[in-house]
Each structure stands twice: as structure tokens, then as C-alpha cells.
Amino acid sequence: MIAHLLVRQTIQILFVIAMAPLLAGWIRQCRAWLSNRSGAGLLQPYRELFKLLRKQPVVAEEASMLFVATPYVVFAAMVVAGAMIPMITTRLLLAGAADAVALAGVFTMARIFAALAAMDLGTAFGSMGARRTMLVGFLAEPALLMVLFTPALISGSTSLVVIVHDLARHGVILYPSMVFAAAAYVMVTLAENARLPVDNPDTHLELTMIHEALNLEYSGRYLALIEWSAAIKLLVYIGIGAALFLPWGITQGPGLAGLPMAYALLVAKLAAAGTGLAAIETLSAKLRLFRVPEFLGTAFLLAVLGLLVRYLFGH
């Protein structure tokens, strides 16, 4: 029993780590196609990561331990987040260790470390990036929590396993409140993963960059870890979305037989969500920075509205 759990958990961790760059590559490829370019191919993120891993890292003289430790902390946080979401199977070793609230907490931890590390060297860009990241974060975190509370109220528990179990059991019934939650979730996902219209992942423009400003001083394996964590974070966010809003095909049984099918379904969901994300990014223009709080405030209020609608309908 425990061995089965361990196997499942290990496979999921390896899947999350290995597939994240592919998802990033897929989104980039879709964006290239949508804007009539040929693109660099699906495997480009892997090539970049391996190149970075091979290089000798360069670290500033003034860097403290915090700066060097942060890439590892962020990477570990993202992998753990990916490990505890029932996106393939509800029977996971780590699923009982943390619920939806703890999941949001793990993301916050990673963000706080990243922001602190950016302030470590005392560069203007770093502290500016830290400030902007925390601005996006303190608005996105409650919005994420409120999104997670809607299904939590439906199933009466914040445990992700219970939520997925409950949602999947009811088959095709679509919950009205989940419409609001889903709309808010898409907005939170865009903001938290530094995608358009909140942040442009392709540029390093001083006036607008948010996420990239945090990583300016990293190089070599540290940069690789940071980039990899960002890719994992995106996969995890889409995975949570898939588990909450499209919970079909997640295996509930104790055996390992259903796993290949569940993985295939998840890959399909990820590909579809990636295409959708690319479409959104291609269609939207970047918001000015002071409009971002408005964007996230809207997400936050939509999620709260979802809670109210749930109360109105009673389910």
C-alpha cells in the first residue's frame, strides 16, 4: 500500500519536473504560430536549461547565503506544490500533508524568498522587482485563496483530495459558482505566472518587468533552477485548474492500472490549457503597472462573488 503510494508520488514528481519545460516550449510554440512565426521548437526550453546548467555560475561578491540558497528553496517549493496536487490520482503520499490553504502558503513562501533574494544585492532593479512581485503577490494570494474556497465550500473541506473526489463524482454537473471561480482563476494564473497582460515573459524592459527583474543577477545553474521553477509553477497552476474545473479522468482507485490513461488525459488538458493561454497572451496587450491591482482586485471580487453564488444556489 505504502509502496504503491510512494511509486505514484515519485512518478508524479518526476512527471512535474520533466514535463514543465515541455509545457513552456509548447506555449511558446503556440504563441509563435499564432503570430505567424515558425518558433524554436518544443524542446528549446530543455536546450536552454542544459546550457545554463553546464555553465559556471557567476555570483556577486556582495551576495549573502540567502541569495545562493533561494533558487533551491524556490525550486523545492514548486516541486512540493506539484507533488501534492491530485491532478492525476487522488491517492498521493503528500496530498494529506497540505490542503488548499497550505498550497497557497507554499507559493507565498517561494515568492517571499525570491523577493528577499532580489533585494540582497542592493541593486535598483532587484528591489524594484521585489516590490512589484510582492504587489502582485499580496493581491493574487487572497484571490487564489478565494478561488480555492468556492470548491471547498461545495465539498465542505479544504482538502484537495476531497474536493477533487467530490467534484469528479458528480459527473457532468457544472456548478454555477465555479464559473466565477474559473474566471478568477484564469486571471490569477496569468498574474502569478508573470504572463501577459500582467507581465511580459519575453522582455527585460526596465519600466515594465516584474518577474524578470528578480532574476537579473542569477546565472548558470542558479538561473536554470529559477527558470525551471517558473515552468513548474505554470504547470502546477494549470494542474490545479485542471483538477478543480475539469476533474474528469483523475483516478481514485488504489491500483496503478488507471495511471497511464490519467497521465494521457492530463497531458491533453495541459496542451489544451497551454493553447488557451497562448491565445490569451496573443490577444491581450500588457496592462500598465498601476492597472494591475485593478485587474487582480477584479479577480479577487469575482472569486468572492463565486462564494456568494454558491450560497445562493446551495451547491
Binding site: I173, L174, Y175, V179, F180, A183, L302
Partner: peptide, 13 residues
């Protein structure tokens, strides 16, 4: 009924 509820929610959205 669930479809109508869903549409109602979308209407409000």
C-alpha cells in the same frame, strides 16, 4: 436545471 443555473451564473458574470 443545472444548465439553466450555469447560464444564470454566466449572465451575472
Amino acid at each position: 436545471a443545472s444548465a439553466i443555473h450555469l447560464l444564470a451564473a454566466l449572465f451575472l458574470l
